[in-house]
Structure formats: C-alpha cells, structure tokens
Amino acid sequence: MTLYFLTMVLFVMGLYCLVAKKNIIKKIIGIVIIEYSINLFLILVGWRKGGIAPILMKGMDQKELVEHSVDPLPQALVLTSIVIGLGVLALMVSICLRLYEKYKTFDMSKINRLKG
C-alpha cells in the first residue's frame, strides 16, 4: 500500500512541475517524471510475492512457471510505453528548439509577452 501511495506522490510532483514551472524544459521534465510513475505503478500491480520473471528456463516445469511467475501482461504494455515516451520526448524537444530559435528564451511568460 505504501508503495502505491509513493508512486502517487511521484505523479503529483510531476504534475506540479508541469503546472507551476515556467521553463519549457522543466515542463518536459515533469512529463518524463509522470511517465516514470505510471510505468512503476503498472509493474508494481503485477508483482507477486517471491515471483520469478515470466521466462521458461531449461529444466523448469510448465506448472512451476504458472505458479510462481509475475504478471506478464503489464510488462508487455509498459515495454511499448517506454519506447513511445522516447519518441514523444524527441518531438517535444524539437518543438522547444524551434521556439528557442524564434524567441531566444525558454521562459513561457516571456514568450507570451513577446507575442502581443
């Protein structure tokens, strides 16, 4: 229970960084932290006490795998989510570089002021 709550705390900190900070790179860092907390939460939900990785080794019985393995489904979904996060991060950073090239700053409030 405590671990679940700590991942929620991590999520809230990322959300705070996303909402309250003015620097765009800080906002991106907030999104990255939110991603980490969600991935950690999904893997924690699928963990089994004394669990082994869901891989059949040589000399291991099929029954042993079914009884002791951790949940393979969230692992497969999180694996795709991590790589998607990398692609989306690259897209966000390229938008930031374009903004920096145009306005010479990363500060959101200055960019807003320069617009009008």
Binding site: M1, V45, G46, R48, K49, V70, P72
Partner: peptide, 19 residues
C-alpha cells in the same frame, strides 16, 4: 489504493491463461 489488490498478490485472470 486500499481498494486495489494487495501488494504481492495480483489478480492475473487473463495472464494465467497466457502463462
């Protein structure tokens, strides 16, 4: 989080079939 399954005892309805 108190309504979630207890840490260390997942539900694994679909996953047990996969395994």
């Amino acid at each position: 989080v108190h309504d979630l399954p207890v840490f260390g005892e997942p539900v694994m309805k679909v996953a047990s079939r996969y395994l």
